[in-house]
């Protein structure tokens, strides 16, 4: 009986160890305020070690993108821009080359509406600054001079790891695409450390993998005008949701609003749309597409979406009306008290 009692005592200790070691899977949510972006990370069922590792990875990738791709502070991208303007062949840093390659591809498929080569125009409008400009906007003359010799991504030639520029006005600015690129890299690295369920939301643009326990991840899409949530989505196993809005960076000069999404056809802030939301697998493509579709506006977005192979789009125009592809309409849920006027485009 003594033996029996002793083994019972051992049994008593066991569950204590088990219940302490294997805590239930749960949600971990953290905000990282990293160099100009608030990153909201949700991890489901990750171990404490994975959580620490994930936060380190995210911080690292954002810092890396920030220093490598900064468009107006001295760093690798400014150096590349200086040498592109010179026009001779040079060795492109390996961390920038894939962005140029992907940028060229997306530039082509968007018909030039996504154009990371027109950094100079962004600078002309005063958006190359941490503080928003107070105006005035550039003169029509300045804009016309730039448009007369508008640089596109075809003005960069690539041979192996060597590149050269063929238009001295060309200046790279990956603002419309760097965030997506970073989110893709972060998700890839989170997967490599065994994380299966996560949302990485970098300043409003996100990619989600896996699920929230028993259910799918649910996200809200902000109203471009006014407050609160316009619509919601349940996400699949691996999807990105990117929104370009005219409310993200803008300034008001003499009562007129100037936002940061510039139309390469007019050289001015794109008119007609107030936000475009794209759902797509890869974040980098979703990011570039959201910009291109915003520039295309309520009239032209369907053609551009077709060319870029983007099936799920929602555009809110400047009057608050909603335009959608059938694939988007099938899954989105409006969360406003009054449903907006919705036009569903025809099957592509």
């Amino acid at each position: 009986m003594k033996m029996l009692r002793r083994s019972l005592l051992l049994l008593l200790l066991l569950p204590g160890l088990i219940s302490c070691g294997g805590s239930q899977p749960s949600l971990h949510r953290a905000q990282l305020l990293s160099l100009g972006t608030l990153v909201d990370v949700s991890l489901w069922g990750a171990s404490p070690r994975q959580i620490t590792e994930a936060e380190r990875i995210i911080q690292e990738e954002l810092d890396r993108i920030h220093t490598t791709l900064h468009a107006w502070q001295p760093g690798p991208l400014m150096e590349v821009n200086r040498r592109l303007a010179e026009g001779s062949w040079f060795h492109c840093p390996p961390e920038i080359l894939p962005l140029i390659e992907q940028g060229k591809r997306l530039y082509r498929s968007s018909g030039g509406l996504f154009n990371p080569a027109m950094g100079r125009l962004v600078g002309l409008w005063g958006f190359h600054s941490d503080d928003l400009p107070g105006g005035p906007p550039p003169s029509a003359d300045e804009i016309d001079r730039f448009l007369a010799n508008l640089p596109g991504m075809e003005a960069i030639e690539i041979k192996g790891e060597q590149i050269r520029g063929t238009n001295p006005a060309l200046q790279l600015d990956f603002g419309a695409f760097a965030k997506g690129y970073a989110v893709d890299r972060i998700i890839e690295r989170l997967r490599s450390i065994g994380i299966r369920n996560a949302i990485v939301n970098a300043g409003g643009d996100l990619r989600a993998i896996g699920r929230h326990g028993e259910r799918a991840w649910r996200i809200g899409i902000r109203q471009p005008r006014g407050e609160g949530v316009l619509a919601s989505l349940e996400l699949g196993e691996d999807e990105s949701v990117f929104t370009s809005g005219d409310y993200e960076r803008f300034y008001i000069y003499q009562g007129k609003r100037y936002h940061h999404i510039l139309d390469p056809r007019t050289g001015a802030p794109a008119r007609g749309a107030s936000s475009v939301t794209v759902v797509h697998r890869e974040a980098a493509e979703a990011d570039a597409a959201a910009t291109a579709l915003f520039v295309a506006g309520p009239q032209g977005w369907q053609d551009v979406a077709r060319r870029m192979g983007i099936e799920q789009v929602m555009l809110v125009d400047d009057k608050g009306n909603v335009w959608m592809t059938p694939a988007m309409a099938a899954r989105i849920r409006f969360e406003t008290a009054q449903k907006p006027r919705v036009t569903i485009s025809e099957q592509p």
Binding site: S26, R29, N201, G204, L206, G220, I221, R222
Partner: peptide, 11 residues
């Protein structure tokens, strides 16, 4: 708390 209607907000 994680009982919100949305896991995160896109904007």
């Amino acid at each position: 708390g994680d009982e919100g209607r949305f896991d995160t907000i896109n904007f």
